[in-house]
Design a protein around this nucleic acid. Structure first.
Lengths: 366, 366
DNA sequence: CTGAAAGCGCTTACAG
DNA sequence: CTGAAAGCGCTTACAG
């Protein structure tokens, strides 16, 4: 592959001049610029980003470690992160932890070794030594969705408290009194918070949340299936199962179907995190929707602020309840309930990103 | 961040010796090795992958450009690619083209600038100049799922021909005679092939495929919705709609539902690409399943063969029909039909990857 | 406006 | 077994 030396030779200038042209440095004669550009084109030259990074000590790259790519919520998040990063002149490298702390650490390590400029993490656990090291080492970092308590890192997340309350109100109104939840891991903030919000909301209606009605899941489908089976084996099975994410709701559906039971007649189902398929499941599933796209964008903004020396801000956005038919109420049409602009109304496809800067050789400095 | 110099100073050796220890070079005294390792630990040193790449001219990184992250098929593919790559000692950087050729080019360019060791692409179009350049430039490359004809690059894909025939047999058996398809872009191989396979299968039953029964989609949900609306507006609407991917099937479902019609009573629906949610849609959707995980793994194997100087092989794996209820036949239980081990039976979670190599400082040379 | 030179953090022949 | 040195491809003060 042609290097800057080849271009310099071809153009009859020094590599310094070539570099200046490529970086839009003002003090280059029009003549030199023309010759360099011609040489670049003739040789099909592209600057080596590795060398540039070594020299400038910046990679213009963000790392994103998500808990599970197979979860549409995180896929959506990743997409909006990449889009916003691109708009700001950064690339993003995604690491998928599959809800496994060891894999998460693997990706954090790899990303750090690559000297990414900043790290976006949705932690799978309460904070491994490596993760805490990363924070202490001063790598710009922002937590998205989940976070690690007691650590001084901005957090961009959504607050489901009010929406969970709305959900319980909805369920209570339908006459349900025995409600169960499939929780995420207690080592994750979202794992805990959603149970707590649920418990608090039940409390407001004088309803208990006995241990038997808390299924321990891990945010993956299989755990939702197992937890639901356990519920169904109870002497008095719950009337409602609330899955703390969409994958566990999928597992719950598998378990319910395997027993030949019907939703919502035999048992009601609701989920945290809304996905397009919930409109078409049998029956359509009542869910709590997060403003996922906006979360991703806000997280990137905060991280880039931090990287570029501006003070980053934590952001908390409200989630909202979307009522469908899985809890028993007839809903003739898609009914969006209660509060806040919809994350579902958020188009699946977001507006096209700005055109790429055209000259092949400009580093996007934004 | 500590550099190799700091480690050398701390250990009282030269940087060459530090480098040898880190790379498991045999000729290092036990004493030196001990001191270096101690220094590494004391300083929390991690080698700078950027510098290493510049020097060795390899990044141990694969690029993967997929057409759409929001499509669960590609998400699954990406996951298996990353897993297999990790097992072979490579990282992967994912670029999401969103079915946009310009975005695809953006990612190919960025990846090439980063000097990835090899590129896995599922092309969004028939081959942009940039893509063809990339091939000619000698960057190791493998196509997955979709490919560009006339270019000498190994292809790892699945052949849906037989499964599409099975589908048509199934539909014909149910008495359907007016069949329509929502096609993908004609610029993509899968866009064309699926229509051709469908047309050929219809032909075998003496059925026509009039132009009015070919909806032009772009593999995204919205296009499926529009195409379906057009079908429904026909004087004689089709009895069956076959969507060439799962996202367009989602759009079709939206359109059908918006008119208050029922599947399969008013219109039957089938899709290419199976996803877990198809079991729980109303009704469960008949689909053609690809061996997605194996496709991803085979693609990585081929690419790494190419990178490491072994002859890479193209791979074609059969897809298979999974009959559910969306075309009219009562299927009391999940019925997996006809041929081949199932991609759905493929566990959603694949077996855990091998443990990471433990010493922090070893380059995974595999 | 331009070029020679130093240096980013590594690896690796080459000598000893 | 070990170290001094060159060099990977860039960028950027410094001098002119």
């Amino acid at each position: 592959m042609a290097s800057i030396k080849d271009v310099a030779a071809e153009a009859g200038v020094s590599v310094a001049t070539v570099s200046r042209v490529l970086n839009d440095h003002p003090s280059v004669s029009a003549d030199a610029r023309t010759r360099v550009l011609a040489a670049v084109k003739a040789l099909g030259y592209r600057p080596n980003a590795v060398a540039r990074s070594l020299r400038t000590d910046q990679t213009r790259t963000l790392g994103l470690v998500i808990s599970d790519v197979l979860n549409p919520y995180f896929t959506h998040l990743a997409r909006s992160v990449e889009e916003q990063a691109r708009a700001l002149g950064y690339s993003v490298i995604i690491g998928n932890a599959d809800e496994r702390p060891d894999l998460q650490d693997h990706h954090v390590r790899t990303l750090l070794d690559r000297r990414i400029d900043g790290l976006l993490v949705s932690p799978t656990d309460g904070g491994s030594p490596l993760m805490l090291d990363a924070v202490r080492s001063g790598t710009p970092m922002v937590f998205v969705d989940r976070w690690i308590p007691g650590v001084d890192v901005p957090v961009v997340r959504s607050d489901g408290q009010a929406a969970v309350h709305d959900l319980v109100t909805h369920l209570h109104g339908l006459g349900h009194r025995r409600l169960a939840i499939i929780a995420g891991p207690a080592t994750t903030t979202t794992g805990q918070e959603r149970v707590e919000a649920f418990r608090r909301a039940l409390g407001a209606y004088g309803l208990p949340l006995p241990d038997a009605c808390i299924g321990q899941g891990d945010f993956q489908a299989e755990s939702g299936r197992r937890a639901t089976e356990r519920f169904l084996d109870l002497a008095e099975p719950p009337e409602v199962v609330f899955a703390a994410d969409n994958l566990m709701a999928l597992g719950a559906l598998d378990a319910i179907r395997a027993r030949g039971l019907r939703v919502p007649d035999d048992i009601a189902l609701a989920a945290f995190d809304d996905i397009p398929w919930f409109v078409h499941t049998d029956p359509p599933i009542t869910a709590i929707a997060q403003p996922t796209g906006e979360l991703g964008r806000a997280a990137v903004r905060a991280l880039v602020d931090r990287i570029e020396g501006r003070p980053p801000a934590s952001v908390t956005l409200p989630a909202r309840l979307v009522v469908r038919r899985s809890c028993g109420e007839p809903a003739p049409r898609e009914r969006v309930a209660f509060r806040e602009p919809s994350a579902l109304q958020e188009p699946l496809r977001e507006p096209p990103a700005p055109r790429e800067p055209s000259p092949v050789m400009n580093r996007s400095q934004s």
